[in-house]
Design a protein around this nucleic acid. Structure first.
Length: 902
RNA sequence: GGAAGCAUAGCUCAGCUGGUUCAGAGCAUCUGCCUUACAAGCAGAGGGUCCGCGGUUCGAAUCCGUGUGCUCCCA
């Protein structure tokens, strides 16, 4: 069979995706094996995978495939999140743009109809992307946070927590998103530093008995505010009682500009006299600090804003005008009547809605909350005790702890339609019951009515209009994907829970990770996952965040088309140290593609050898040890790397494990081993070597398979004819404690040391050849002075071939007219027909000599330092002596070579 | 304003309990090669005040303090 010039990723991807699917390799059912469970962090149902997802999914796939090949029953659950606000915003936008329909004109059911339609249409995109990337998820287990059973689970948990007193309803100051017209949790607000303005506004004063008052500053009292449009909501002016400028204002009143409403002057030490003018306007409806101050001093609350951010009737002026427009109008009016004293530049922080980007408005509103303190304690303990391990450790542990120790109640109601509707039912009189169904709610009303007849019937009950925060459903994810809430204790939840590892971005540590631990501890009495692996942010080459507006976020499918899925996976993993941000650079994908090509070519070479004449060496023959040496060496090297990679992967150092495998394949296997066993031009292929080369390659592609599944599966099948069920993705690793040693004559370590020597000698001689400007085709003669000629007997033939030497002779003294090379403790003399440039050689040797004498001097200095000899560990001192002796030996050799050159 | 993390080759990073696995890897660069698997390649090479300063120690990239610069979380 003729192999193509390069690896063709597209074909292999299509072929193996369908083959694996057909054979149900990724389908998992409980059985006798230990489970390795991973639940995917559900992406937004109508979203697309960005590079952050790509990194996450690749990491998960590597872990899952590795586990599947290591005796585990691997189960990776795919799914998506209904993403309440984000999806609803998109649907609203679509309806207005494409159909000219306003949400306000639709009934709840009509709107949900459109939303589900939208989900059906776009919900498949991410699944397709996950598949294209090669993720070995169990497609029979696709879960969605709005599935029927999932919906029920969320409602059930809400009712349960309410009954336990962990959910309550109340009026609180919350974060309001005027664009999405919904409440937000504290975590959904992002703060940005902006350049704003501070306006100094003068309020007219009046004493308790109605006389005009003045301050040192002039006619009235001057306050500084960033939000002049809220002055109509002022219900007091507050000064510090210890501020001498204002002591005479005790009991006095001020008039709100423009609307002339009289408000009291109050005193509180909360006010910082050094900030602004030392006087503060108090607007309890529109600032959290003012709200608290208002509670303390029992001030009125005047809410001057509507839910969409326009001014309300309570503002009296500019009613219906947007808050930012109103700000300008108010400023203009104040300027006109002289009450605006000055404006100054001021840098401050503003809260923005994570979803809509609108400036968040602090607002008092009746919402549902989860009491977090009680839930947080076990979640904190699980991590502090080490039951859950966070990777990388110290970096995120502190953040996690801090948040849980200072956790605030969680506002879970959202004024949206897309999501689980809050199961609270209101009677006409405004009283309510929390229950899963209308029927249950009615029963609850009846039970609480003390036998007296109710004045209303079940159909008169009105369900709460609001839905629950998306995260209130996601926090059940590791449980309810196995029906752990709706069918507690079922076979699957018992088998698959707790999951093995959670892989996610560090940005959702509060939103999701901590809350899943809380929910898991509450409902399964067990942690939801043993390890948490936090990936870093994916940024562009210049370190900027990937964003749509910058246009620096590449399209995943385009990248896969261009480089192949394996190369994309390689590229993103090779540059991805755990927990650190990753600077995404297409050059890394190119490196990945080059790697696939390299491996493809190794396959081609082996395939070619198969068709050549073969013979089997006599394993008893005298020369066999030498002939078999490369096989024994590579076996040792492979064993060594297997152990290393296993350790690295256990520590979640996936990037380093990949680097190690990459170098093993490219350098040790292709550049050294294959060259070492490569037959000469007209020589037949040695069947024993070929057999080894093939089985080594099988092991190599197996080792690499979790990272680059398509290429490796393809090569595995092209290396040999395989039985129907013999596929790489399920081939089991030989456990590292049961690896076969190289076994022919000497221990692995001896082969490895000999291999290092051989590499060093080859490289050293090639270097000298290069420096002497010998062409690759120029044949040389080698002479060698060594104390240990035995070491060279088995590797001699390889050495000759690798440096294009015709002969090797062992000599006691320098050979005149040759180039000398000192490698390790041995001296090589390179003879050739070409003239030797003595001058250059001399320079080289002299440079080396200079370095070595300096080195010996530093050793001497150390060794003559009594405190060193006394204090340092004996082995360190010994080492120092040995280093010195080695260097002196080398100096002797170099001196001999130098005199030889004269 | 508080907390945490980072600073090592041109770039991205490794470097565990201080000492030959201590100054490393990959990419990029330079030189020579179209050598029958591979130019998406082969063979070699060069490149660093381990951010500055101070301390502990026989010995510091590594430990401690401090300054500077960046990142990120919280208010």
């Amino acid at each position: 069979m003729e192999l193509t010039k390069n690896f063709q990723p597209a074909e292999a991807e299509v072929k193996w995706t369908s083959e694996w699917k057909k054979k149900n390799y990724f389908t998992s059912r409980p059985d006798h094996r230990p489970a390795y469970t991973v639940v995917i962090p559900p992406p937004n149902v109508t979203g697309v995978l960005h590079m952050g997802h790509t990194l996450n999914e690749t990491v998960q796939d590597i872990l899952v495939r590795k586990a599947r090949m290591s005796g585990f029953n691997a189960c990776w659950v795919p799914g998506s999140d209904h993403a309440s606000i984000a999806t609803e915003a998109k649907v609203v936008q679509m309806l207005e743009k494409e159909k000219g329909i306003k949400k306000a004109d639709l009934s709840r059911d009509e709107f949900l109809g459109y939303a589900f339609e939208w989900k059906e249409k776009y919900g498949g995109i991410i699944y397709n992307q996950i598949e294209r990337l090669g993720c070995s998820v169990d497609w029979n287990r696709v879960s969605f946070t709005m599935d029927d059973h999932y919906y029920k689970a969320v409602i059930q948990v809400f009712v349960d927590l309410y009954k336990k007193g962990l959910i309550y309803r109340g009026a609180r100051m919350i974060n309001w998103d005027p664009a999405a017209k919904t409440a937000l949790s504290d975590e959904e607000v992002e703060y940005k530093d902006i350049q704003g303005k501070l306006y100094h506004v003068c309020y007219r004063l009046e004493s308790a008995d109605g006389q005009p008052l003045e301050t040192a500053a002039g006619k009235g009292i001057v306050i500084a505010t960033q939000r002049p449009e809220t002055i109509m909501g002022d219900t007091a002016i507050c000064v510090n009682p210890n501020d001498p400028r204002y002591t005479h204002l005790k009991g006095a009143f001020a008039y709100v500009p423009l609307i002339n409403r009289r408000i009291p002057i109050i005193e509180d030490e909360y006010v910082d006299p050094s900030f602004g003018t030392g006087a503060l306007k108090v607007t309890p409806a529109h600032d959290i600090n003012d709200y608290n101050l208002g509670l303390k001093h029992q001030l009125d609350v005047v809410d001057t804003l509507n839910e969409d951010g326009t001014l309300s009737a309570a503002a009296q002026i500019h009613v219906g005008v947007d808050r930012f427009k109103a700000r300008k109008l108010v400023v203009d009016a104040l300027k006109e009547n002289g009450q605006l004293i000055k404006e100054e530049e001021y840098s401050t922080r503003l809260g923005y809605s994570q979803r809509s980007g609108a400036v968040v408005e602090p607002r008092i509103s009746t919402q549902w909350f989860v009491r977090m303190k009680e839930l947080a304690e076990p979640a904190l303990a699980a991590v502090v005790s080490g039951e859950i391990r966070i990777h990388p450790g110290d970096k995120f542990l502190a953040t996690y702890k801090y948040w849980l120790e200072n956790v605030k109640d969680w506002c879970i109601s959202r004024q949206l339609w897309w999501g689980q509707q809050i199961p609270a039912w209101y009677a006409p009189d405004g009283s309510f019951q929390v229950a899963a169904t209308r029927k249950d709610a009615m029963a609850a009303f009846e039970a609480s009515a003390n036998n007296s007849a109710l004045s209303f019937t079940a159909d008169m009950l009105k369900q709460d209009e609001d839905v629950l925060d998306t995260w209130f459903s996601s926090w059940l994810w590791p449980m309810e994907v196995f029906n752990g809430i709706t069918k507690p204790g079922n076979e699957e939840i018992r088998y698959y829970y707790p999951t093995s590892v959670l892989v996610t971005g560090q940005d959702i540590i509060f939103f999701w990770v901590a809350r899943m631990v809380m929910a898991g501890m509450e409902y399964e009495k067990q942690i939801p996952f043993r390890d948490v692996y936090f990936t870093g942010m994916v940024r562009d080459k210049q370190g900027r965040k990937m964003s749509k507006s910058l246009g620096n976020s590449p399209d995943l499918l385009e990248l896969i088309d261009k480089y192949g899925a394996d190369a994309v996976r390689f590229g993103i993993m090779i540059s991805s140290p755990a927990g650190n941000d990753l600077l995404f650079d297409e050059a890394a994908l190119e490196q990945g593609r080059n790697f696939t090509n390299k491996m493809w070519n190794a396959l081609k070479l082996i395939t070619m050898w198969k068709s050549r004449e073969q013979f089997n060496p006599d394993k008893q023959a005298a020369g066999f040890a030498s002939l078999n040496w490369p096989n024994a060496w590579f076996r040792s090297r492979l064993n060594q790397v297997r152990v290393e990679v296993d350790q690295l992967m256990q520590q979640f150092r996936l990037s380093e494990a990949l680097k190690t495998i990459y170098s093993l394949i490219w350098d040790d296997y292709c550049s050294w081993y294959l060259e070492w066993i490569k037959p000469g031009q007209d020589e037949p292929v040695n069947a024993w070597n070929l057999q080894n080369a093939v089985s080594f390659y099988e092991e190599l592609v197996q080792l690499l398979h979790p990272y680059m599944p398509f290429l490796t599966e393809e090569i595995y099948h092209l290396l040999a004819d395989r039985a129907e069920s013999d596929d790489l993705c399920i081939r089991q690793f030989i456990p590292v404690d049961r690896l076969q040693p190289a076994g022919s004559g000497q221990p692995d370590a001896a082969y490895l040391a000999q291999g290092e020597l051989l590499k060093q000698v080859i490289t050293g001689i090639r270097d000298q050849r290069n420096k002497a400007q010998l062409k690759p085709k120029d044949i040389i003669q080698l002479a060698l002075t060594t104390a240990d000629s035995e070491l060279y007997t088995t590797i001699q033939s390889i050495l000759l071939k690798q440096v294009n030497a015709a002969s090797l002779s062992y000599v006691a003294d320098a050979v005149p007219g040759t180039i000398a090379a000192v490698i390790g403790k041995d001296r090589f003399y390179i003879g050739s027909d070409k003239a030797v440039d003595k001058g250059m050689q001399k320079d080289e040797l002299q440079k080396e000599l200079l370095y070595l004498t300096g080195f010996v001097a530093s050793c001497d200095k150390k060794l003559s330092n009594e405190r060193f000899v006394q204090h340092a560990k004996p082995e360190v001192v010994e080492m120092e002596k040995k280093k010195r002796e080695d260097a002196i030996a080398k100096i002797t050799i170099i001196n001999a070579s130098l005199s030889n050159l004269d």
